[in-house]
Design a binder for these strands. Structure first.
Lengths: 211, 211
DNA sequence: GGATAAAAGTGCGTGCACGCAAGTTTGCGT
DNA sequence: ACGCAAACTTGCGTGCACGCACTTTTATCC
C-alpha cells in the first residue's frame, strides 16, 4: 500500500456513501427534514447507524451532500482544464459559476428543500468550504511562483467569497434602510459579484497576467 | 427597546460570559481539557448547565474564548482607527498582526494548552471566522464605492487568510518531500505572508489607492 | 493459495447540544 | 409606585456525535 487504493475497496466505500446520501435525501423529501432520524437513514442504506457516522458528521451534511454531490472535484477539474493562456481570475470565476448554475429538473425539488429549511441552508453554505483543498491544488501550477501557501490563501478566499454569495442568495430579501427590498438576484450574478473583488489578487499572483 | 441595552442587563450577561470563560480555562488548565465536563464549568461559574449552553455551543468554544477574549472587536477598532490616508491593505494587515502578537506572560500557558490539544486547535482556528462581521463594518467606509457586499467579501477573505495562517502555525512542521522540515516561522510572519496575496484586492477596492 | 496486515463495519457507552415550556429577573411606561 | 412585557435562566427530554474495543472484509506478500 503506497498512495492509491484503486481496488474494490474504494469502490464499495463510494457506493455506501452514495447510498447514504440518496437515502437521506429521499427520506427528507418524504417526511420533511426534521422528521428524519439517523437510524432511519442508516437502515434505508443498509448499514449500521455507527457506520453512517463514519461518513457524515451531521444529519444535515448527509442530506445536503446528495445535492452538492462532488462539486468540489468538478470545480477543480474545470479550473485545471482551462487553457494556460487565460487569466486565472477568469478561469476560476467561470468554473465556479458553471458549477453552481441550475443543474436541471431532478435536483430542483431537493434544492427547494434545502433552501426552505434554515438548518439545511447553513449546512449547504458550509459545503463551499470543501472547495478549498481541491481548488488550491488546481491553481497552484498556475501561479507565478509555484507557492503552495499563496494558492491556499487564494483558494480559501475564493471559498469564502462563494459562501458570502450563497448566504446572500439564501437570505430572503433583507429590507434595506431606504425601505426598498432588493430581491437578491440570480445565483450566477451573485457569484460573479462576490468574486469580482478578488480578481485583482488572483491575477496579481497568476503566472502570466492576462494582458 | 430599540437598539441598545446599556443597562444592568447587558452588564450581567457579560459577567456570566466571562465567568464561564474563566472557569472553563481554569479547569482545563488544572485537569487537562479532556477531563472537564460541561457540568463542572457551569457549576464553577455558578449557573445551570443549560445556561452554559446558551452562551457557548461547544465545550472547546468556552475554553478558547478565554484566550481570544473579544479579539474581533479590537481588530475592527484598530482598522477603523487608522488614518484614512494609509492604504487599506496596510491598515488591515497591521491591525491583525498587532492583535495576534504575543500578549505577554499570563496567557502564555493558556495558549500552550490550546496549541497542544488538537480539538482545541481547531476551535481556536475557527475563532478567526468571527472577524468577518466586525471587519466588514470597519472597512466598509474605506471603500471607493461604499458597497456593503464588497466589504463582506474582503472581510471574509481576510478571515480565511488568517485561518490559513493559524493552521499553518499550528501544523507541527510537516515533513516536506525534499526531506527538509520547515519550522513554520513566527506567527506575525505567517500572518503577513498569508495576507500578502490579498493586498492587491484590498487596495483595488479601497477609496484612494495608497500611491 | 494461505498467512498477515490494513481498513472498513459494528455495538456500546458517554457526554453533549438544543428545543420546549415553565419560572424568574429586569426595564419601561403611566 | 405598580404592573406588564420582554429578556434571561432553568429543568427536562430527546437525538446525536464520537471514542473504544471488537469483528469482518479486503489487499498484499511469500
Amino acid at each position: 500500500m503506497t498512495t492509491r487504493c484503486t481496488g474494490l475497496r474504494e469502490q464499495k466505500k463510494q457506493a455506501t456513501r452514495e447510498a447514504l446520501r440518496e437515502a437521506a435525501l429521499r427520506l427528507a423529501l418524504a417526511r420533511g427534514p426534521e422528521d428524519v432520524r439517523v437510524d432511519d437513514i442508516a437502515e434505508a442504506a443498509g448499514v449500521s447507524p455507527r457506520t453512517y457516522n463514519n461518513y457524515f458528521s451531521s444529519r444535515e451534511q448527509a442530506i445536503v451532500a446528495a445535492v452538492t454531490a462532488d462539486r468540489e472535484a468538478r470545480v477543480a477539474a474545470a479550473v485545471a482544464a482551462r487553457p494556460a493562456g487565460v487569466g486565472l481570475a477568469e478561469a476560476v470565476v467561470e468554473a465556479i459559476v458553471a458549477e453552481y448554475t441550475d443543474p436541471g429538473e431532478p435536483a430542483r425539488a431537493a434544492l427547494l428543500l434545502v433552501t426552505t429549511h434554515p438548518t439545511l441552508r447553513e449546512a449547504f453554505v458550509d459545503t463551499a468550504t470543501e472547495l478549498e483543498n481541491p481548488l488550491a491544488d488546481a491553481i497552484t501550477p498556475r501561479l507565478a511562483d509555484t507557492d503552495e501557501h499563496t494558492a491556499r490563501v487564494l483558494a480559501a478566499s475564493v471559498a469564502a467569497a462563494v459562501r458570502v454569495a450563497l448566504r446572500r442568495w439564501l437570505r430572503p430579501a433583507a429590507p434595506s434602510p431606504s425601505g426598498l427590498v432588493v430581491p437578491s438576484g440570480s445565483l450566477p450574478d451573485l457569484l460573479r459579484a462576490a468574486l469580482a473583488p478578488l480578481e485583482p489578487a488572483l491575477d496579481a499572483a497568476a503566472a502570466r497576467p492576462h494582458r
